[in-house]
Write a protein that binds this DNA or RNA. Structure first.
Length: 921
RNA sequence: GGGCGCAUAGCUCAGUUGGUUAGAGCGCUUGCUUGACAUGCAAGAGGUCAGAGGUUCAACUCCUCUUGUGCCCACCA
């Protein structure tokens, strides 16, 4: 087989992935004799295309899955996608807009068909991209949050929570996105500072006639959103603010609208801010909403769903967009000289996390989950470290959020998603007369009053099955709730709903092929899952809620460990995002350098939990390493063939000291890599194996045995290669598979059909003679020193004669190793002498000289001086310690012993160097 | 306003129970077309571990403060 000089990942990767799929190596199942290891993938959006964040996130999971698989676990990576309500709807709406259509033109059913069409044709894009990355997901289990069966779980959960009184409907002020025209949860409305103005507006005051003369004829309120004044129904002052005592009996008049405003007192008002008087707009501001409830104020809604002003905002402004209305209103206020001043002001405004539109706080009828009761257990399991965070600091972040958790608004006014399993009986509703099912209508109806938070449940049917008649009146005129659920209301069930929980109660839409008992067993085997790998952005959205759902419905944590990795940034430290255009496309990197190169570079750079800065050149680390692995293997096979070697299992009897040395280094690498992987410190494991393979195995061992390519050596080489490949496999699955197969073809070793199912390497039992080991290490050091000296003397690549005086029982060491020592040091001959006329290097075992006439003494002496100074500095530091009585008294014995040894060795070394130097004077 | 991080070589970062006169990758300097690999090999320069205190026999590592910097949460209009 001809192997080109450079590694070409393209065909290798495709071929390997096909093989794994064909041999069903991704599949995991219940096995009594194996430990389970499971991860559920954070389901990517069906609209998603693979970005660097996915690549990082997925590689980490894949590393753990493959590692645990090799360790003998039933290693399950559960894949799937998320229907991503708003995001997907937006995409399909945009497509529709190209034909000049709106979703309303199609109607709900037709539009839903379009959504499914889109999902079916595009939804697997991300899946195939994950496959290119090498993801070892059990693809036969792939789930989608809109599967019929998955929807069963959602209904079950909704109904159960409703029956427990943990889900309620009510009129509240919520985050409204006027572009998506839906309510959002607090988490979906992140605050961002925007530059704005704080306007000081004069409100006239009408006083009883006989009032004292001190009072002003107007008051001043400050606001960043002047247009909301059209919905003002009060002004508020702090009860302890005596400046405005006079207002208590007065009427404040809302300009333009000329509405009388009540003056209320509330502790929420900060006397220090602005003028100390607050305009109160109960229907358009969360604090004002609370005040409105407390003081029984009128709620006047001045906006439509698209944030245009409505008739309540007076005919003058009706129909205007909120920002245009703001300007128009300001113009009039200026004209009437009612603006006292304006100041530049940073406003922390909520933004829609899907389209970045500024959120409008809006009162509407929505569905909520009571979170406090659900949070209790989820707090405890984290406090008690039953669920552990890596890095641990996220525990605090999680707990802080959980301690102060707010109710979760779960209804969305979009069409793509799970419709709430809520049905309204029209007849019953008509009788109570206070309910309608159209939110937009309901909101307009709110002009007058929102009386109570909780509306009566008359006429509301919450049911797992579609009811045919109203249980209370028997009427059959039922309509289902129009709203759909927040997408996260499906995601939070992911760790168990993916196993087809709830195993069919009154509802059961499992596919025929799915066996209930198997699934039940699988859930109990694989749940709780072992780790959840995610970015910090969805800690609250998803992680926290999964823990709550797990505790509530499984009675058990959903995962033991939560791995929070960093954010992917560009080389300047700016977060990669499509809108900024600073992304690096992982698929382009795969095309250019290979998936292994991508994965390796990511794992090499990603220290646990810290952000990772990327530029295209960072992927050269991985590419170069792939090339190194490939070439070293290519060389081994070439040599094996050239020498007609039949390589089989390692034979410990025929090992020499150097073989033992490399195997010992290998042992240590295995130990450390395993330890690091077990503790999720993947980058440490990656670095360790990289360093061993390149700088120990290739740079030293392989170079040493190059010209002595005998069978015992070949066995050590192949053994070490295989062990390293195995350790690298979780990180770089493709190239390791390729070479593992090639090992099979080029040797007589019996091995597994794929490295994926090969067992994790174990340490070799080596009987190591300490003295021989020391001599071997001295030999390596001597070689480094000789190269060093040659460079100092300007003899870099010149072949020189080495004269050596053996000062102890090590003659055979030089004789046996002569050939490679000469090659690696670039020596002409090695001559063993009784006496040297000059010594360039000396250690406990030998001293040596190069047979050359004149040397540049000054550079050599300078180099010696440098070493001597180094030793001196070190010695003074160590002796300071040893002279310190308290050190001797307090430090543990072996620490003191170590220092003594250091001192002894270094002083010996120093005097040797000193002698050498003196000889050159 | 509250909370959480970060500050180590020119750049990007490791350094996990305190005991190395501090490591890697890239970049830089010097020398190598050595038949596995120039996507390589050899040698090297470069750091008072942000600053100031403290704890300790011992601090890059623990504590406090300062400075700079980043992120998250929050109803000061």
């Amino acid at each position: 087989m001809e192997m080109p000089a450079q590694y070409n990942p393209k065909e290798v990767e495709e071929k390997a992935y096909r093989k794994w799929a064909k041999e069903k190596l991704f599949a995991a199942s219940v096995a009594e004799n194996s430990d389970p290891f499971s991860i559920v993938i954070p389901p990517p959006n069906v609209t998603g295309i693979l970005h660097m964040g996915h690549a990082l996130n997925s590689t980490i999971q894949d590393v753990m899955i493959r590692f645990k698989g090799m360790k003998g676990c039933q290693s399950l990576w559960m894949p799937g996608t998320d229907h991503a309500g708003i995001a997907t709807q937006n995409v399909v709406e945009r497509n529709l807009a190209k034909d000049g259509l709106k979703k309303e033109d199609l109607g709900r059913d037709k539009f839903n068909e379009k959504l499914w069409e889109w999902t079916n044709s595009h939804g697997s894009t991300i899946i195939s991209q994950l496959k290119r990355l090498g993801a070892a997901c059990d693809w036969d289990r792939t789930r989608f949050t809109m599967d019929d069966a998955y929807s069963d779980a959602i209904k079950e959960v909704f109904v159960t929570l409703y029956e427990k009184g943990l889900i309620y409907k009510g009129n509240y002020i919520i985050n409204w996105c006027p572009r998506c025209k839906t309510a959002l949860s607090d988490e979906e409305s992140p605050h961002r500072d925007i530059d704005g103005w704080l306007y000081y507006i004069k409100y006239p005051v009408s006083r009883p006639e006989a009032d004292n003369q001190k009072a002003e004829s107007y008051i001043v309120v400050a606001t960043t959103r002047p247009e909301t004044m059209l919905g003002d129904t009060a002004v508020a002052i702090n009860p302890n603010d005596s400046r405005y005592d006079y207002l208590k009996g007065s009427d404040v008049i809302l300009p333009i609208v000329n509405r009388k405003l009540r003056v209320i007192e509330d502790e929420a008002v900060d006397p220090e801010f602005g003028t100390g008087i607050v305009k109160v707009t109960p229907a358009h501001d969360p604090i004002d909403f609370a005040m409105g409830k407390k003081h029984n104020l009128e709620f006047i809604n001045i906006m439509n769903a698209d944030a245009t002003l409505n008739d309540n905002a007076t005919a003058m402004f009706a129909g205007m967009d909120r920002f245009r209305g703001r300007q128009a209103l300001l113009d009039i206020l200026y004209e009437k000289k009612l603006i006292e001043k304006k100041e530049p002001y940073k406003i922390a405004a909520g933004h829609c996390y899907r389209c970045n539109t500024i959120i409008e706080p809006w009162v509407s009828a929505q569905w909520f989950v009571k979170m406090k009761p659900l949070a209790q257990k989820a707090i405890k399991v984290v406090e008690d470290d039953e669920v552990k965070f890596y890095p641990p600091r996220w525990k605090k972040v999680y707990l802080n959020w959980m301690y102060d958790i707010h109710d979760w608004c779960i209804s969305r006014q979009i069409w793509w998603g799970h419709r709430l399993p809520v049905y309204y009986c029209k007849q019953c509703l008509n009788q109570t007369g206070n309910q309608t099912i159209d939110h937009r209508q309901q909101i307009v109806d709110q002009n007058s009053k929102t009386k109570n938070n909780k509306e009566s449940n008359v006429g509301i049917i919450v049911s797992r099955d579609t009811p045919d008649k109203c249980p209370s009146c028997g009427g059959s005129d039922l309509v289902q709730e129009e709203d759909v659920l927040d997408t996260w209301f499906s995601s939070w069930l992911w760790p168990f709903a993916t196993f087809y929980w709830p195993f069919g109660k009154t509802i059961d839409h499992r596919p025929q092929t799915i066996d209930l008992e198997t699934k039940r067993e699988e859930l109990s085997y694989f749940y709780p899952t072992n780790i959840l790998v995610t970015a910090s952005e969805i800690l609250f959205f998803w992680v926290a809620r999964m823990i709550m759902a797990g505790m509530e419905f499984m009675g058990e944590i959903p995962f033991r460990d939560v791995l929070i990795h960093g954010t992917v940034r560009d080389e300047y430290g700016v977060k990669m995002s499509k809108s900024l255009g600073n992304t690096i496309d992982p698929l382009e990197i795969i095309d250019k350098f290979g998936a292994d190169a991508l994965r390796f570079s990511l794992m090499f750079l990603a220290a646990s939990g810290s952000d990772i800065y990327l530029s295209e050149e960072k992927f050269l680390i991985g590419r170069n390493f792939c090339n190194k692995i490939y070439n070293s293997a290519r060389f081994l096979f070439l040599k094996i063939k050239e020498n007609n070697l039949v390589v089989d299992n390692l034979n410990l009897d025929s090992l020499n000291e150097i073989d033992r040395w490399v195997l010992k280094e290998l042992n240590q690498t295995i130990e450390e890599a395993s330890k690091y992987l077990e503790s999720y410190r993947i980058n440490e494991a990656t670095k360790r194996v990289y360093d061993f393979f390149w700088h120990t195995f290739c740079d030293w061992y392989l170079e040493i045995v190059k010209d002595d390519f005998t069978l015992p050596k070949a066995k050590v080489l192949i053994h070490t290669l295989i062990s390293t490949l195995k350790m690298l496999h979780p990180i770089m699955p493709f190239i390791t598979e390729e070479i593992f197969e090639a090992v099979g073809k080029n040797t007589k070793l019996t091995q597994e059909s794929s490295i994926m199912v090969a067992s994790w390497p174990r340490k070799t039992e080596l009987n190591i003679d300490a003295r021989k080991e020391e001599i071997t290490k001295s030999l390596f050091n001597t070689i480094k020193e000789m190269r060093n000296i040659k460079t100092d003397l300007g003899l870099g690549t010149k072949k020189v004669k080495l004269k050596i005086k053996i000062t102890s029982d090590t003659k055979d060491v030089w004789a046996k190793n002569e050939s490679w020592i000469k090659r690696l040091t670039i020596l002409d001959t090695i001559e063993i002498c009784e006496d040297l006329n000059r010594v360039l290097y000396r250690n406990d075992f030998w001293e040596l000289n190069f047979d050359i006439d004149d040397i540049d003494k000054s550079t050599f002496v300078a180099s010696l001086d440098k070493k001597i100074n180094h030793a001196k500095g070190f010695l003074s530091k160590v002796s300071k310690k040893l002279e310190n009585k308290r050190f001797i008294e307090n430090a543990p014995g072996d620490t003191v012993e170590k220092e003594r040894l250091k001192f002894k060795q270094t002083s010996a070394q120093k005097s040797r160097l000193q002698e050498l130097r003196d000889a050159f004077k």
